[in-house]
Nucleic acid binder design. Structure first.
Lengths: 252, 252
DNA sequence: GCAAAAGTGTTCGGGCTACACCCATGG
DNA sequence: CCATGGGTGTAGCCCGAACACTTTTGC
């Protein structure tokens, strides 16, 4: 049986500043190759799969700094691309500043999700300056056997493989779950950061605006103030913070 | 590359009543075969893996009623049993009342977890009337690359394959996560149940006692009272409840 | 009567939400 | 001065924890 791994790599980018007095707005990004699909890696029986996935990312971006975890294994008979009959997905988070080299066949796409009013349909746009991919996904709640399950289905016209869309969906769901229960948010940022940067990571992943004053208090135990101050070219300079290593929860 | 699936099947059993006036105590159970390992199933490229897993459970217990979800895919080079180089685990929950036939080579084991005081070591006992399997697992928090991860390691003497122990650990963690965020608890029970039965499911999975009055209020929105009353041979008869189908959350 | 479970109500505290308000900056 | 972000404080609300109390049953 032929197996392959694929990599669902998330990152962020900052938009050009439109108003000098406003903060740069961060956007959530995803890596796809020229076929609108995820980069793949080989799986062999000599090595832990996770190690193979890590090696591939190192090879691609020439950096050992990133977050990675297994996302899901897909055995959908209709997803046999590259002769592969089974795909093991790994979710990764990478801070672009750590990327030493960008492979030519890969590109970062901004993710934009729009929830259609009064319906379970989400409109997703993946875009960068060269390309735009659009599709709609319907998240249906359905009774399957004895249980209630979410079924995702592409609807209307789409420019992407159905399973690819479902994997993106699964990846974002996982991010949302992890950001509430672990410290993955820090994987998007430099070692030192402003609270507003951290807040933006939460906002783009959870896809909602947060109240700064409350956010600050909520994440207080997770961060440590450094003595550094930086004017992230906003007006009042902000303190730099780091992740508080002492903060451990019942993660995973 | 050789692949197999395995099934981490949880269930519950009620102890013999010791005191006529006390409730039967439920225990969490797990299915293992004669080699202290999980039942396996074949994976082929013609079928969804989940479907293969479901078919295997139906074949084993002759019932279509159970809960199932993918747990994790293990590519550990040191876990090549039965010539299999890769194992995809599925977590299942089954209510014993639905089992029409019990395979001879499989047995239900009571799970007993004891957290050692002032240490990260858990003592686990799997037992039934014929057999007792004991081991200790250490859950170490460790910095791996840029992130903090939990590493599970068997310590001391043990009577079980290391990965089997880790899978059990992962299964219980998943149960704990799911019971807080989904309706899986109901998979252990009949369609109609007493609140105290539901509470016992929560207690054995979360491994802590809950206050009945608070539990009742908390799960109120998830259940619906029926007009049936049953004396579960405790003293005051209790109302029977069912899962409230209207109760939907952002599950999964 | 009493032990045990079924079921209701009340109090208290912590955490989240909303919002007012100050400070710092440089256009 | 003023728009904008950085940062602090506070009042209200909701939810969970703890617990008191009533009801129902059969020993």
């Amino acid at each position: 049986m032929k197996i392959q791994g694929n990599l669902i790599i998330f990152s962020t980018d900052s938009e050009e500043r439109k108003d000098v007095r406003k903060l740069k707005e961060k956007k959530l990004q995803l890596v796809l190759n020229e076929n609108n699909n995820f980069p793949t890696f080989e799986i062999n029986s000599k090595e832990y799969i996770k190690k193979s996935a890590e090696n591939k990312i190192e090879e691609l971006f020439k950096t050992p700094q990133f977050y990675i975890e297994q996302l899901y294994t897909w055995g959908d008979p209709s997803y046999h691309i590259n002769n592969s009959e089974l795909t093991i997905s790994y979710l990764a988070i990478i801070n672009k500043k750590n990327i030493k080299k960008m492979p030519k066949n890969l590109q970062f796409y901004d993710i934009h999700i729009e929830n259609k009013e009064n319906s379970s349909i989400q409109h997703i746009t993946l875009s960068n300056k060269n390309k735009k991919i659009q599709y709609e996904i319907d998240t249906i709640v359905k009774r399957v056997r004895e249980n209630i399950e979410y079924i995702n289905k592409l609807v209307g016209k789409y420019e992407i493989n159905e399973l690819t869309a479902i994997i993106i969906h699964a990846g974002i769901k996982r991010l949302r779950n992890r950001i509430e229960n672990t410290n993955i948010a820090f994987s998007f940022l430099d070692k030192e950061f402003a609270i507003s940067e951290l807040q933006q990571i939460y906002e783009i992943i959870l896809d909602k605006k947060l109240v700064a004053a409350n956010f600050r208090k909520k994440i207080q135990p997770m961060i440590k103030k450094t003595d550094k101050v930086v004017k992230e070219s906003a007006y009042r300079p902000s303190n730099q913070y780091t992740f508080n290593e002492e903060f451990i929860r019942n993660w995973v």
